[in-house]
Design a protein around this nucleic acid. Structure first.
Lengths: 246, 246
DNA sequence: TCAAAAGTGTTCCGAATACACCCATGC
DNA sequence: GCATGGGTGTATTCGGAACACTTTTGA
């Protein structure tokens, strides 16, 4: 205590240990996308408090664990997902946000191509499920607020950074890309203009392959070119798909 | 403990209390602006660790204090500033970022019209001082990293939200505004084009007043119209001052 | 041949750029 | 008058918007 007290000489005479009584958690807004629908992965809690309620996947951080690391662990343990795009977006720290004590939480969002991924419950979750972001249940804690902020953050970032591609399979058609943006931003774009805009950036590598088993002219497949993006960024290029919505 | 254990049934069998051993702090990047110079307020620490080093103003959060509230308090206690624009931007939580124990920190930035404000040291700070953001000292803890992220965040946000005005006096000339943006973004703009762009948004209310005691044609004074901005926002207007840099 | 979606081209319009020029003030 | 910044006008360019059109496939 003496050793510690010399570290924090704050005005108020609160003993040092009083400060080290916070819980720290990470919560994750996992976005998925499939055929025009943007969804979010929620878990059904099998523990108090809010047992039986839906909540964002999240957990307390261990003392010997970096925060970013913890975020990855949560995802792996609660959803089985690994090596997924993840980014911190906001932290929530009001006094009464957790009934069991003072817990601050750092929120991350991650992007998954939900096509193949079939979630499965684990540990202290009764079940786990995708929810369309247009019809969400009431959530535990302040997770409604966190999720809301997560959605807004994604909608903003997706316009200025090429993160949307994380929600698609590696190979995709331009129409699929357009549908994705329309779903994310809840808008409609003009097809020719969308194509021109996205192609003019020269971030998509056209493949030799085309769609198969479609009863119409098969579409060319494209792939996002990460290297190209990094190059352009160095030259001051700014990704931007602001287009007029119909 | 029994009561508490039912709240967190996580996979690992770490006792519940082990999770409530975090310190939580807030750190604040206070931006100031004066005559073409963007600066940041730093304090010289008068306590271990890093006694004598420059650091961002920050402090541990009290258990009964909301995080946002704490951010405001820090500013008031360490700098005397009150009712200042403040926004959270990122959190830092690696295990070893604080030598005294596990402390996660939530970073805020705030914007001050530094013209009149003369900082004065207080509490556990030896001194407090403005530093031009182009020549910064090495900082304590991971504050270099926090400050760097703060600067980048401001540079991004200032282009898409009318926050820059917080750095100017209530009444300002268009040239002053342009200089501010040029300093923030480290760029040069074409004067006629800058004016047209900013005036076309109709966010500035022209006043009847003009500059005084200048040995050239006196400039008109303007004022940012917050109400007008809120109106426009509802109609879908997006603030944007992306201009070609000369 | 028809439906369905892929994919292209062209005109129009507005906003950003580049740049020349005029205006008001103090000294 | 002239230096100094304030302030304006305009031709040009470029990119987004609107919209009509052609192409390729399966059935």
């Amino acid at each position: 205590m003496d050793k510690q007290n010399k570290y924090f000489l704050s005005e108020n005479n609160v003993p040092f240990q009083e400060f080290f009584k916070f819980g720290l958690s990470v919560d994750c807004v996992v976005f998925g996308y499939h055929k025009g629908q943007v969804s979010v992965l929620l878990v059904e809690r099998d523990a108090e408090p809010f047992k039986g309620s839906w909540a964002l996947p999240g957990d307390l951080v261990n003392l010997d664990e970096d925060m970013d690391e913890a975020a990855g662990s949560v995802l792996r343990k609660l959803t089985g997902l690994e090596n997924i795009f993840m980014e911190q977006f906001y932290s929530f720290g009001s006094v009464q946000r957790h009934p069991a004590g003072r817990v601050a939480t750092v929120a991350y969002y991650s992007l998954v191509n939900s096509d193949e991924y079939k979630p499965k419950a684990s540990a202290w979750t009764k079940s786990i499920q995708w929810f369309d972001i247009r019809s969400l249940p009431k959530l535990a804690f302040d997770h409604d607020q966190i999720l809301d902020k997560g959605i807004r953050t994604l909608q903003r970032r997706v316009r200025y950074r090429p993160v949307g591609f994380e929600l698609l399979p590696t190979k995709f058609t331009l129409s699929e890309l357009q549908e994705l943006y329309e779903a994310l931003l809840n808008a409609k774009f003009d097809k020719p203009n969308f194509r021109k805009k996205i192609l003019s950036m020269e971030l998509l590598r056209p493949l030799e392959e085309v769609q198969e088993n479609v009863s119409h002219r098969p579409a060319k497949l494209f792939q996002f070119d990460e290297n190209r993006y990094q190059e352009l960024r160095k030259e001051g290029f700014a990704f931007d798909i602001t287009l007029k919505t119909n």
